[in-house]
Design a protein around this nucleic acid. Structure first.
Lengths: 343, 343
DNA sequence: AATAATTACGGAATCGTTGCCGGTAGCCGG
DNA sequence: CCGGCTACCGGCAACGATTCCGTAATTATT
């Protein structure tokens, strides 16, 4: 069952040609006659010859492989982004190694560090590490590996493109929308206070409150620890306090779902007592009870754009200039933020 | 910025040692003195030396890389399975290449064919190809590459483990449950009539009908073409005909969501007019309106088990015997199948 | 004290592929 | 008839790491 492998040497001996001739024939070199090319290609096809990718990588310092590093996969944003990354990469002939850091900065560092050995030509990453702790990324840069950030980005990396959404504006508009719907006490649940999207979205939220003349209450800025139990307790306690918020703006769909569960448990009416708005790419948002108002990012397109930038950096380094691409997310208004009769 | 690479040669020259000595020292060989080992390891750590994986792969015919091939990624079953695969693989020191075939058998064949070149040590796959068209998998087998199937499996591959759920029993129990809830006219939407889970689930559905003395109506066995428009039209037409089904049992969550949309559009009451049951791993099933009754597979565990089997085949081929592991799925009863007062 | 065994290291081949260089045969112009 | 040109092909040295083998120096054995 374990057939002996077919390689150039094998082909060459069968065809009574030299290895280099076979190699050139397969690569359609002009140095080889049409006759010979045909003989070589026919036999290669017949024997199902597939060049060993690692031998080529060793010579050419290119692996035609990229890494995608994401904090989480149980999150529809990343699912759609990965789908975009995957499709674009394969369309351009690249293979995709996937790494899930589980929101663990130490693990992310490990993964990134082991990436300096030529296994991949470039990296597409959505960070879980705090913005002030990025030496592991610097190391990659120094090795000359192109990096493209998406969604959770780090700025100030000279060579790196950044693909993100208009987080500040989205959060501003979302918060203002909640205010327009009658909310006066809006809490915000951020994914982290140390990463880009956490900071940008918080600022948008704060600015919208200020512009409406509403004081920002620090105790209503909830910061996730990416721990289900902790986050649940934090949100629950906030929603159950006296004079509780009448609006909740969450930064990831997980927290919106937690809020749903809490409201069911304690019979808090959405949107009557609490209006809920969340960044989310859930395909079921419109089917929930009540349907969930969302700020939806173009996740698939973000993934595609990230890979396009990366491949540009890899294949036309001369023509490549790092770009900061900002895509618009859309606010989809549904029942969870509906204005009530008495409001 | 593009620092010169550090490899064994570089380390050797810096340490005034030979390449082979450095290599052995790093691998903790007994041939090397403790002194030298320490000198080597210290410098390697200081310079952040990472061995080139492809050079080793070339010599040892092992890449420490596996491929996971799935038909789709916008499907929570595969999401959780991929998470399980990923975690287990990384825990055992393997890298994971991901390929999404988009339910396209031709693309799957392409991917599999290009896998015979040593890029991966083994393959974890959920099939999209019909059961009677598996030469591409035979080719892998002949090359000696271990394959582990999960969920959508192919039998009769001597070397291959199979990880699946009790599809027949689950479908039987699910259908019987619908009957117990008062359904008399149950339609079934299968994912395909040519793959394992499609066939097994259909048989379970049919047997449950027979055992209840209900005739199987072929026109109520809907076969997906994995095309959103087509599937929507098919289900819509079935649900709108006169004497329409009073129960729908779908094999993938996508079709359940389609059914939700159709029912909303045409004001068909769930569960009043139509009871809905679906295989699904949706985290939002309990939050839908109405909440969705599901048959939920242990997707994460299936992914883990698949990789465990694969690594066993790779690392202890002598001790490895192909296994057929069947895990139980659970039927979660919710509103979409609730018995009505008059039933 | 002579031989055997052990320790610690270096040399060189090897994995499969690429690409530079060189060589031969045939053809043409001068 | 010879130099130069093109078309076509082969030899060989890499790429980075592993591993078999060889060897010198030191230690152990009888």
């Amino acid at each position: 069952m374990n057939m002996e492998p077919i390689n150039l040497k094998k082909l060459a001996s069968l065809l009574h040609l030299s290895i280099s001739t076979v190699s050139k024939a397969l690569r359609d070199s002009h140095e080889i006659s049409a006759d010979t090319k045909k003989r070589v290609m026919d036999l290669a096809r017949e024997l199902n010859y597939e060049p060993n990718p690692y031998a080529g990588s060793l010579r050419k310092f290119k692996s035609k492989t990229i890494a995608v590093i994401v904090p989480d996969i149980i999150n529809n944003f990343f699912i759609f982004a990965i789908k975009g990354i995957q499709e674009m990469a394969h369309a351009r002939g690249y293979h995709v190694l996937i790494y899930i850091t589980n929101e663990n900065p130490e693990y992310e560092k490990d993964v990134v560090r082991h990436m300096t050995n030529g296994r991949v030509d470039g990296v597409v990453i959505s960070l879980t590490s705090p913005l002030d702790d990025t030496e592991h990324l610097q190391a990659l840069q120094e090795k000359g590996l192109p990096i493209v950030f998406f969604d959770r980005v780090a700025e100030g990396f000279g060579n790196s493109s950044i693909i993100a959404t208009n987080n500040y504006e989205s959060a501003y508009n979302g918060t203002r929308y909640l205010i327009e719907q009658g909310c006066k006490r809006i809490a915000h649940c951020q994914v982290s206070d140390k990463i880009s999207i956490g900071i940008d979205r918080l600022q948008g939220y704060q600015k919208a409150l200020e512009d409406a003349g509403i004081a920002v209450r620090p105790e209503w800025i909830l910061t996730s620890r990416k721990d289900y139990m902790h986050d649940t307790a934090l949100i629950e306690q906030t929603l159950l306090q006296k004079n509780a918020p009448d609006g909740l703006f969450t930064s990831v769909e997980t927290h919106a779902l937690i809020a749903y569960d809490i409201c069911r448990k304690h019979q808090i009416d959405i949107p009557g007592q609490l209006k809920l708005l969340s960044f989310s790419n859930m395909p079921t948002a419109h089917l929930l009870k009540p349907s969930l108002s969302t700020i939806t990012q173009p996740a698939f397109e973000i993934g595609q754009a990230a890979v396009q930038q990366l491949i540009l950096a890899l294949e036309k380094p001369a023509r490549y200039v790092p770009e900061q691409i900002n895509m618009d997310s859309v606010l989809v208004k549904r029942e969870s933020t509906a204005k009530q009769p008495d409001q």
